[in-house]
């Protein structure tokens, strides 16, 4: 696809000018560089989870960005949890469940990591998918 696009545009340009100037080459290189750098930045940021999904009994009830600090309470008929997002990490800092295992679990920051509150049927998940 890359080749096809490039030759297509080049031949169109060459029809009138008949030659590629040095400036054109620099421009092509610059455009490609920007693209590659963009892709690198993209993939680096991608390795960190970008959003936090909150599941109640298997269904997503809320989604947050992991980049933005936040604190909120989530309450269902089973109980209440306080969830904090700080410095790109999510944690459950308070809950009224009996065992408090969700509070004891460490912060999550990578794709696929979860905090689970069994009594409240709550799952906090870090994910890199946008859906």
């Amino acid at each position: 696809m890359e080749e096809k696009e490039l030759t297509g545009k080049n031949s169109e340009t060459n029809e009138k000018n008949n030659r590629i100037k040095k400036a054109d080459i620099i421009l092509i290189a610059a455009a490609l560089m920007i693209g590659i750098i963009g892709l690198i930045i993209y993939s680096v940021t991608r390795t960190k989870g970008l959003s936090v999904n909150l599941y109640q009994d298997g269904k997503i009830v809320k989604t947050f960005s992991l980049d933005k600090d936040a604190e909120f309470d989530y309450e269902s008929d089973l109980g209440k949890n306080t969830i904090v997002i700080k410095d790109g990490k999510a944690s459950c800092i308070w809950a009224d469940c009996p065992d408090k295992l969700c509070v004891k679990m460490s912060d999550i920051e990578n794709d696929g990591e979860t905090i689970i509150c069994l009594p409240h049927k709550l799952v906090i998940e870090v994910t890199d998918s946008d859906s």
Binding site: E2, L6, A31, G38, L39
Partner: peptide, 17 residues
């Protein structure tokens, strides 16, 4: 023509990205 050519290149790059 050259401007069109440059614009085309930029578009192609974006498409690749």
């Amino acid at each position: 023509k050259r401007i069109i050519g440059i614009a085309g290149l930029v578009l192609a790059t974006v498409a690749i990205i």
